[in-house]
Every structure is written in structure tokens, then in C-alpha cells.
């Protein structure tokens, strides 16, 4: 279909609930292919909830409910005919805290390939593991200890292992939920450099607390905030090119937030 259209994801009148609580209200944004989109905003405004809606991870919370549509290559991923398992294979996720499986480094990457039906030979699998680790800029550090536990790596290495694990199954979009918040500045820098590399082949959406990080890495920025203080629902109040958001925002609240005058 629209393989080469400009937009890969689009939300339409998206409302996200936990039970009766409307956590994220009325989001309408279009995500550009092969770009990095940042979602910023104060704590508790629903950034992670919105991010998790993009690959239906929200459904793992029993009370979660979704209204509206998210189009992925013009197809609604919330259509009843769509299996969330398939959505998540194509829209991967990297989490706030590194969460490698308590298996070997090799198995951390091979497992996703195997469950998704990779039927190639052992040497093909070896090649794919190596490629994923190279793409995640981790190969040189771990090539001699692939059989060691993923948990034996440092925090920054673990997070790159998680990125390698994600790209190994060839998603089209990678969702990143504050991927560097648990890391030191040097490890953070490496992840940010890596994102610039990955952008050539993947679309990235990143939630971040850190406005400098959003300004450094992203092409587009969605500014989220509570609509008002009565219903506590978060929404996207402004969405534009990152430089516009940071230098010349239309919304007064965005300006106050990015200049640190908020709250």
C-alpha cells in the first residue's frame, strides 16, 4: 500500500482509559517515516501511556481501554481482525530500565527471531545475531562472550543489547520509553548516537523527560500536558518540528515548559 508515503503512523481521535479514568484524550498526530519523534511533557501527563498505545502494550494492563484509531501504514492496528502479537513484531519497544532476559547474550537476540518463525540454519542465525549486535554498536564489546548471561553486562551495554534484540526482528518502528534515564552520561551519549544511525532504517518515537535530549536527538516533538486540572487527562497540545517547539512555539504553555518556567 502506502509503503513510501511520508507518514508511517497516524492517530485519530485517540482516547486512552484506565477503567473510567481518561488518561490521554483526543490525540491526533502523524508520525513521519525515518524520523525521530520525541514526546515530552511533565510527569503524569500520559507520555508513556500514549507511547504504549502505538504497539498495543497498553492491553497488558487489564483495565486499559482504547478509543479511536491508530493507523500504521494506513491500516488501523486496533481493528478487531488484527492480532496485537503481529503489531508488536512490527513496532518494537525499548524500555526505561534495561530488561535483558536472564539468558545468554546470544539467546537474548536469537529468541525473538525464533518465535517469529525464523527457519534458517544455525550459521544464518549466527549472522543475524552478529548483524543485530553490530547495528546496536555492541558487537566489539561482546563478540567473545556471547554465551554469557545478558545480566552480566553493564547498564549501558544491557540497554544496547535490548536495542539489538529489538532490531533483530526487523520492526519498522522502535518505541523508546526514556531509554537513557537509568544510564550515566557516557552511556546516554552512546545511545543517542546509536539512534541517529538507526534512523536511516527505522522510525523512532522516544519519550523523554530530558528536554536537552529531545532537542539533541529528535526531528519532531510532541508536547504533552494535562488538558485542565479537573479531569487530569493528558493530551498533545502542540506538535511540530523540534526546532519550532524549542525556539518558536505557538502555545504559551509549551514556551513556559521548554524554557523551564513551568510549574
Amino acid at each position: 500500500m502506502n509503503e513510501n508515503s511520508e507518514y508511517i503512523l497516524e492517530t485519530r481521535n485517540l482516547n486512552l482509559y484506565y477503567g473510567n479514568f481518561l488518561a490521554v484524550a483526543d490525540v491526533n498526530i502523524k508520525i513521519r517515516r525515518h524520523q525521530i519523534t520525541a514526546i515530552i511533557g511533565p510527569s503524569g501527563c500520559g507520555k508513556s501511556t500514549l507511547l504504549r498505545a502505538f504497539n498495543r502494550m497498553n492491553e497488558l494492563v487489564p483495565t486499559a481501554r482504547t478509543e479511536g484509531e491508530i493507523l500504521f501504514n494506513n491500516e488501523n492496528i486496533y481493528d478487531p481482525s488484527i492480532d496485537p502479537v503481529e503489531v508488536r513484531r512490527r513496532i518494537g519497544m525499548v524500555f526505561q530500565k534495561p530488561n535483558p532476559f536472564p539468558k545468554s547474550i546470544y539467546e537474548n537476540i536469537a529468541w525473538g527471531l525464533r518465535i517469529n518463525g525464523f527457519r534458517g540454519s544455525k550459521s544464518e542465525l549466527d549472522d543475524l545475531v552478529e548483524k543485530a549486535l553490530r547495528d546496536a554498536a555492541l558487537w566489539d564489546e561482546v563478540k567473545d562472550k556471547l554465551d554469557q548471561s545478558g545480566l552480566s553486562l553493564s547498564g549501558g551495554q544491557q540497554q544496547r543489547l535490548c536495542i539489538a534484540r529489538t532490531i533483530a526482528v526487523r520492526p519498522e518502528v522502535i518505541l523508546m520509553d526514556e531509554p537513557a534515564s537509568a544510564l550515566d552520561p557516557i552511556a546516554t551519549l552512546r545511545i543517542e548516537e546509536l539512534m541517529q544511525e538507526l534512523k536511516k532504517n527505522y522510525t523512532i518515537i522516544i519519550v523523554t523527560h530530558n528536554m536537552q535530549q529531545a532537542a539533541r536527538v529528535s526531528d519532531y516533538t510532541a508536547m504533552m500536558m494535562l488538558r485542565n486540572h479537573e479531569d487530569r487527562s493528558g493530551t498533545v497540545i502542540e506538535f511540530d518540528r523540534t526546532e519550532v517547539i524549542f525556539t518558536n512555539p505557538r502555545d504559551k504553555r509549551t514556551q513556559d515548559y521548554v524554557t523551564g518556567r513551568f510549574g
Binding site: E86, R88, F95, K97, N99, F101, T166, V169
Partner: peptide, 22 residues
């Protein structure tokens, strides 16, 4: 930890695969 289950789901694993293999 829930984070391990989430990691597996995010790779496109089914519920049974998450349960038995992770």
C-alpha cells in the same frame, strides 16, 4: 518482574510463548 514479560511481548511473542519460554 513485569519488565521481562513486557520485553517478550514487545518482540511479538504470544501469551503462551511469554509464559513458557520467558
Amino acid at each position: 518482574p513485569r519488565s521481562l514479560r513486557e520485553a517478550a511481548y514487545a518482540l511479538g511473542a504470544t501469551k503462551a510463548e511469554v509464559a513458557t519460554q520467558v
